[in-house]
Design a protein around this nucleic acid. Structure first.
Length: 251
DNA sequence: AAAGAAATCAACCGCCATCTA
DNA sequence: ATAGATGGCGGTTGATTTCTT
């Protein structure tokens, strides 16, 4: 459902992400983090703009993302939140761990809009366009909303390991036994998981040395910066650290 | 079975806020 | 104080898929 891949003037690729591009992005972010989206594609060997990489990661590749149908509870929550917040999808998304704002927005426009209209035809609070972005931001800051961390619910299960297990990055060679919710599945290719891990972990893959140690998720709400990240020698250590620190993290 | 309409959703665009030098 | 760089957000697009006739 996607646009035909093409190139813009500057030679950057646009359109649908290929499995190979996904692999590169996952491998890079998993290993080095998103320290600078603008620079990331260059170091990750991607012919994409930083924005495109960020979007792809945030909406489809990052850990903890649920893929699959929305539950009744989720639908109700979205409708309720939309009634009070309007089209502030990013805030709504913070209340639905595992769902991206883009996905929620799409879901709203395709399914929930009608439902909501039927239910609350008299309500005029939704789609509160009277708030300018500036106003909203100020309001949010006042309310301290940017520090909200709904995704750090103790019930959540760390899924980086699942991702690596369920994909070609599998380190443990365990079959993915997932439920109705599909957590990041990558199209398979001919390479074995071990080969791919080795490929991306080896120095030969990386065209440039990593420049910014100890800078994991660049100023995303000043959240998680893993200790001694620069000392990690491989993905397995990162996974262990990730799991240990999971409850303090926000994606 | 074929054609057209409608729905879906990944991705792009442009604007604004924040950060940094 | 200011300008440029960067990140983040919401609106929108458009190719593909599904449904309807």
């Amino acid at each position: 459902m996607v646009r035909t891949p093409c190139c813009d003037k500057s030679g950057m690729r646009k359109g649908t992400w290929t499995p190979e591009e996904d692999r590169k992005l996952i491998a890079y972010v998993t290993r080095y983090g998103c320290w600078n989206w603008r620079q990331l594609p260059k170091f990750a060997g991607l012919l994409r703009c930083g924005k495109s990489c960020r979007l792809r990661w945030m909406n489809y590749l990052r850990p903890n993302l649920k893929r699959g149908n929305y539950t009744k509870e989720e639908d109700e929550l979205i409708i309720k939140l939309h009634e009070s917040l309007g089209n502030r999808w990013s805030i709504i998304a913070t209340h639905l761990p595992g769902r991206s704002d883009n996905e929620i927005k799409n879901h709203w426009h395709t399914s929930l809009k009608k439902t909501s209209k039927n239910k609350t035809s008299s309500s005029k609070r939704s789609s509160n366009k009277s708030h300018s972005k500036r106003q909203r931001t100020r309001k949010r800051r006042k309310m301290g909303i940017e520090n909200e961390n709904p995704s750090s619910s103790p019930n959540e299960v760390p899924v980086v390991k699942e991702i690596l297990e369920s994909s070609e990055f599998s380190l443990l060679q365990k079959p993915c036994e997932n439920s109705s919710l599909q957590v990041l599945s990558l199209p398979s290719s001919s390479s074995s998981s071990t080969e791919i891990i080795e490929e991306y972990s080896s120095g030969s893959f990386w065209t440039e040395p990593f420049l910014t140690d100890n800078y994991f998720y660049s100023n995303i709400n000043n959240n998680y910066i893993p200790p001694n990240y620069s000392l990690f020698s491989g993905i397995e250590e990162f996974i262990c650290s990730y799991e240990e620190n999971f409850n303090t993290m926000v994606w």
